[in-house]
């Protein structure tokens, strides 16, 4: 089990019951280590309310272009993306890219 904070910023909270931050215990059967890829699937299974909103979050099994993923306030590209193994206290943030001005 790993205890993490998940954030949905830039308006992305609309797909997760309009709640911007979740403090959750993530437990997956038969897994000692939980990585960010697992967490993304867990979010789809547990937090996204409407099936129709999954494609707002994912495209071709990965995070949709236009959403930045951050692990402890750092671009996930610098942290190993889906392979990053979560530790207690980690903060994983997803933010929509904004375009207005």
């Amino acid at each position: 089990m790993v205890r993490v904070i998940i954030e949905f910023l830039g308006g992305l909270d609309v797909i997760v019951k309009k709640q911007r931050q979740y403090k959750v215990d993530v437990q997956l059967d038969g897994k000692d280590e939980i990585n960010v890829g697992d967490l993304i699937q867990w979010i789809v299974d547990n937090l996204i309310e409407h099936e129709g909103d999954v494609n707002v979050f994912l495209e071709n099994d990965s995070i949709r272009p236009g959403i930045l993923t951050l692990i402890n306030d750092t671009d996930w590209e610098l942290e190993g993306e889906k392979e990053y193994v979560l530790e207690d206290g980690d903060v994983v943030s997803f933010t929509s890219t904004l375009h207005g001005g």
Binding site: G11, V56, E59, P65, G66, L68, T97, H99, G100, G101
Partner: peptide
């Protein structure tokens, strides 16, 4: 570099569409 692939046009919201608070922008 940040955004190698453009977002789907359906996911792009303008201020006219999504609204915006003056002091925030």
């Amino acid at each position: 570099c940040f955004y190698p692939t453009p977002p789907a046009p359906t996911s792009v919201s303008s201020c006219q569409e999504g609204g915006v608070l003056g002091p925030c922008v």
